[in-house]
Design a binder for these strands. Structure first.
Lengths: 161, 161
DNA sequence: GACAATTTACTCGGATACTCTCTGTCCGAGTTCTGACGG
DNA sequence: CCGTCAGAACTCGGACAGAGAGTATCCGAGTAAATTGTC
């Protein structure tokens, strides 16, 4: 039970993109340089965000990635799901089917109480993540660390020089 | 983000053990035969439960595994943690440390708001799992599927013949 | 018949291969900008 | 001086290797029961 490393990268990158002027695209190379990450691999993760409709990408010079929606419309769950996939953490292989009294016709993902309990926990996790948007996170950071937006914009600006 | 297959096996096996007379031990071979699981690998998972103090093991003929505590004292989180380990799902590698204004002295697992948000979700998941004991699960199954305890005991009994 | 020693069968436990996902890297297709060239 | 066109630089996107955890298996140490032999 561990999340991919790309989740952390994706969350920080989305937050950084949220501080840029709308429409401004940043290449994977520059986003990677921000935290000294491997550029090609970060690019791979960002592609997943594009496929999920969270980011939009542009090719060629001055191209790169930008948010595809307003930060208010992007939840943390959206980002996590884009990287990790939509499957829930607990894999019910329906082993009850092999047990005594097991039937091939029953969907034990619904009938098995263990499966239900694990799904409840999974939903609690997702609910927590879905309850916070990128905009709220951005605002919280600006309250606690007021210099961050300026620093971020400045760092990207000097990358363009 | 996916749990090991052993989690499902461990939960079902613990539940089966809870239906046996107290003190009665069942070998990994028989527990595996219950759901047609690979015996040696299930044994490996059960060892983890022993190390975690959830099960007690006995060697030799008539030996096997039994619950080390009352079902009321075993939560679903205990079982999951025994198999998956205690680490939380989100791995904060503190990449902020490499960013502009990052300091080697700051613990970004505490300071980073992204890390905090992910930890909140993790705690919600754990709280849900810690809130249900093996005894409650057992009672719920007995309410919904009254035949299960008898069937389980019967199946194990005929294994001993 | 009762007891003790030996053999046997069975159990867990850890050490050992195999597989798949995650991680990391590379190169090609496409696009935009730049610069040269001609009118 | 302005417009057009070719070249170059830069970008994403998917295809290609390497590492680590999860999966599966096997064999040995230890234990309890069963058997045999003796008193």
């Amino acid at each position: 039970m561990k999340l991919s490393e790309g989740v952390e990268w994706a969350l920080h990158s989305c937050l950084n993109l949220a501080w840029l002027p709308p429409g401004r695209a940043v290449s994977a190379t520059r986003l990677a340089a921000f935290y000294e990450l491997p550029a090609a691999y970060l690019n791979k993760q960002l592609q997943a965000l594009v496929r999920a409709g969270l980011l939009a990408s542009t090719s060629g010079p001055r191209g790169g990635f930008r948010l595809a929606r307003a930060p208010e419309e992007i939840t943390l769950l959206d980002v996590v799901t884009a990287i990790e996939g939509p499957e829930e953490a607990f894999r019910c292989e329906q082993i009850l089917r092999q047990g005594p009294g097991g039937s091939p016709d029953v969907d034990y993902r619904q009938a098995c109480l263990i499966s239900q309990a694990m799904r409840r926990a999974d939903l609690a996790w997702r609910r927590e993540l879905a309850g916070q948007t990128l905009a709220e996170l951005k605002a919280a950071v600006e309250r606690r660390y007021p210099d961050t937006p300026g620093n971020t914009r400045g760092r990207f600006a000097e990358m363009f020089s």
